[in-house]
């Protein structure tokens, strides 16, 4: 270690790898992975989300999963919940294609993709 700058950049890098264990104040993407979701391709959606976040280096976005919310005919579903917002955004019939748009438009630019939302809470 030759300088404080070196320590700082090391910290920044290591912090990203640990962001999962901290409350980052950023949105969480929840993939609904009941049997119905999985049968309709929820796993593929999940994998796409992960690789998309990875390629964009968005380590502070948490991805978790949960069970079936009851809207089986609309699976795969994902929920985007933002800290401080009471009602989360629920997207229906998500595909590996449109999930990329959700990440770009909603997660990165903060504009929910309203036409795919099941709940019309804006």
């Amino acid at each position: 270690m030759r300088s404080l700058e070196e320590l700082k950049s090391l910290k920044a890098k290591a912090e990203k790898e640990m962001a999962l264990r901290e409350d980052t104040g950023k949105p969480t993407i929840i993939v609904h992975m009941g049997t119905c979701g999985i049968a309709n391709g929820a796993r593929e959606v999940l994998n796409t989300i992960l690789s998309e976040l990875k390629s964009r280096n968005l380590t502070d976005i948490h991805v978790t999963q949960t069970g079936c919310p009851g809207l089986c005919h609309l699976e795969p579903l994902i929920t985007v919940s933002e800290p401080g917002k009471k009602n989360p955004y629920i997207y229906a019939k998500v595909t590996t294609e449109n999930v990329k748009k959700i990440i770009l438009q909603h997660i990165i630019n903060g504009q929910p993709v309203t036409e795919w939302l099941v709940n019309l809470e804006k």
């Binding site: 270690m1 404080l4 320590l7 090391l10 910290k11 890098k13 290591a14 912090e15 790898e17 640990m18 264990r21």
Partner: peptide, 21 residues
């Protein structure tokens, strides 16, 4: 219970060695 004690990077991520600096 928060960090992996066998990785110095995780200690550094939580401000480790900044006091020495």
């Amino acid at each position: 219970g928060i960090i992996n004690p066998e990785k110095i990077e995780e200690y550094i991520a939580r401000d480790g060695y900044f006091a020495l600096a």
